[in-house]
């Protein structure tokens, strides 16, 4: 088998193992901070995985290039030449969207962690859950 295929498949499976380890961390760690860190590992691994899927080794030229025209295409030939070397732009666009979303979510979660520490004095999930005496309508 082609060495390149073996290398890429191994990398993909390694990324999957990383995802599963991160899932384990999210659902089993006691510390909420470590849960959030596992979540970060999860989403970053996912980004790499998507980029890996969009990657390609072109047939004609030796190395692929980013999906950006280096110069304004003057003729249809230029676009055809661009097609022979560019990688898939769609996973990259997906991932930039996902990164911004994760940024928003993680900054919100960080704020929540600060508030949690203020209220409970620790970041452990298993704080003593006492029934709050509350007015039910608020």
């Amino acid at each position: 088998m082609d060495m390149l295929i073996v290398a890429f498949t191994t990398t993909a499976i390694a990324l999957i193992v990383n995802i599963v380890i991160a899932t384990y961390g999210i659902f089993t760690d006691r510390s909420l901070l470590k849960k959030v860190i596992s979540l970060l590992i999860f989403s970053d691994t996912l980004s790499v995985f998507a980029i890996l899927i969009g990657f390609r080794i072109p047939k004609v030229v030796s190395s692929p290039s980013p999906p950006i025209h280096l110069d304004i295409p003057g003729t249809v030939k230029d676009i055809e030449e661009f097609l022979t070397r560019t990688v898939d732009p769609i996973p990259q666009a997906f991932i930039i969207t996902a990164i911004v979303i994760n940024l928003a979510i993680f900054s919100f979660l960080a704020g929540l962690l600060l508030q949690y520490y203020k209220h409970f004095g620790s970041l452990d999930v298993h704080v003593l859950e006492e029934e709050e005496v509350v007015d039910e309508v608020y």
Binding site: L32, V36, L39, L112, L113, F120, E129
Partner: peptide, 8 residues
């Protein structure tokens, strides 16, 4: 607490 559990 509920938000953190739901959020994560």
């Amino acid at each position: 607490r509920a938000t953190l559990i739901y959020g994560i």
